[in-house]
């Protein structure tokens, strides 16, 4: 075996609804290697969030298996493996009743990691995102960009090997979003985490990733995996690279093509 650390095999998720079973995702198969930065891109309703929630132990799959390292899960990811994963939510999802410091210690408490080493890690992460001064503030005192930075470092605080990010910057304004994308790239370069990043923004997925999985709807499935062969470190000027434009055209084309098919079917 190579250094695959996340694998999904024939994963299917069916939600029971009043109108009958709804297939959210079907036949999902992929493998992610160590230190990869993979984006899952697709239109809304394609099941991106379903996939990442299954991986994050929030949802149980209906069929198929999830494998982390050498551990296979056939009915939901559970137990101590979760301490190797950090999950970043769409909204910052901080607990308003806890100070920033307490929010950051929450994963440590749950995973029973205590001691000076971990306390120090909180300080280091706060310093990394330039928010040391807000250690004792409550989340409501921070701007939305700051809150999302804390949301990201909360997922890093227990030093997981894998980072699952569910459209983490989708709710931010475009300037803050770009800033955080570059911050994320530098975090990834420094820490070499394995990242699965969800977005519906094609440019964002190309800028960040080493591979992009393109998804389609009805039923949600992965239709293509594209390797992004662009130099790193990446800067804003990357969007002038002809290969960048090519990737953008390919991915947008794929999404439109499959959306087109659906549109025809619906008529």
């Amino acid at each position: 075996m190579n250094d695959t650390i996340i694998k999904m095999q024939d994963v299917e998720k069916i939600y029971p609804t009043k109108k009958g079973p709804l297939v959210a995702v079907q036949d999902v198969n992929f493998a992610i290697n160590k230190e990869d930065f993979v984006s899952l891109v697709g239109p809304s309703g394609c099941g991106k969030s379903t996939i990442i929630r299954i991986l994050g132990g929030i949802l149980d799959q209906t069929r198929g298996t999830v494998t982390y390292f050498d551990r296979e899960f056939s009915s939901g990811v559970k137990g101590d493996i979760l301490s190797k994963i950090g999950f970043v939510f769409q909204s910052h999802n901080l607990l308003p009743w806890l100070s920033i410091k307490k929010n950051l210690s929450l994963p440590l408490e749950i995973f029973k990691l205590s001691g000076a080493k971990w306390e120090k890690r909180i300080d280091e992460l706060l310093e990394m995102v330039g928010l040391t001064a807000y250690k004792n503030a409550y989340p409501a005192e921070l701007s939305s960009g700051m809150q999302q930075r804390i949301g990201v470092i909360r997922a890093l605080v227990h030093d997981p090997e894998i980072l699952l990010m569910d459209e983490p910057f989708g709710s931010l304004d475009s300037i803050t979003r770009e800033l955080l994308n570059f911050e994320l790239l530098s975090i990834w370069q420094k820490t070499r985490k394995t990242i699965l990043f969800i977005t519906h923004n094609v440019e964002e997925s190309i800028l960040l990733s080493s591979r992009v999985f393109v998804m389609a709807t009805n039923p949600g499935r992965i239709i293509e995996a594209i390797d992004i062969d662009l130099p790193r470190p990446r800067t804003q000027s990357i969007s002038n690279d002809p290969r960048y434009l090519e990737y953008e055209a390919t991915i947008t084309g794929l999404i439109d093509q499959f959306r087109g098919v659906d549109a025809v079917e619906e008529v």
Binding site: I58, Q90, I110
Partner: peptide
């Protein structure tokens, strides 16, 4: 989403109650 946070951490029902539901 707050309950999902606790699920992503593998928290027990009691931990979820104390840390999220009660406050």
């Amino acid at each position: 989403t707050k309950l999902e946070l606790m699920e992503s951490l593998g928290a027990t029902k009691w931990q979820t109650f104390v840390k999220v539901t009660f406050p």
